[in-house]
């Protein structure tokens, strides 16, 4: 049976206002974020501008600032905020019993 969700670890392995990555062989990494109030989001680890690693940016409110040229990307939608435009794929994620679960289909599609 193929489960719908991939278990990637404990939620407290992700620093608050920080992120961790999940490697998918043959594809882009996935960046998993945890915001100041503890919500978890996942995006392809690739800025819509020039591919910067969003996992390495500064997380504030519900957004991350890309480390390369400081675009702000909304964590829930993957959309660039402000005057910039572009979108990064969102990977559905949920937290259950303290474990972080990624949507299998979206994870594999990102690969």
């Amino acid at each position: 049976m193929i489960g719908e969700w991939l278990d990637i670890g404990w939620v407290d392995e992700i620093p608050v206002r920080g992120s961790r990555t999940v490697q998918v062989m043959g594809g882009d990494d996935i960046a998993v974020f945890r915001t100041g109030d503890g919500t978890v989001f996942a995006l392809a680890d690739r800025c819509p501008h020039k591919g910067g690693r969003l996992s390495q940016g500064i997380v504030h409110g519900g957004a991350v600032a890309c480390p390369l040229h400081n675009w702000r990307i909304a964590l829930a939608t993957g959309e660039a905020l402000g005057d910039d435009s572009g979108c990064t794929p969102v990977i559905p994620v949920k937290v259950s019993g303290g474990r972080v679960l990624l949507c299998r289909a979206a994870t594999m599609a990102a690969a």
Binding site: L6, I8, G9, E13, I14, R20, T21, V22, Q23, V24, M25, G26, D29, V32, V100, T107, M108, A111
Partner: peptide
């Protein structure tokens, strides 16, 4: 370190 690794 990445949090997890998957191959499809």
């Amino acid at each position: 370190a990445p949090m997890a690794r998957f191959t499809p």
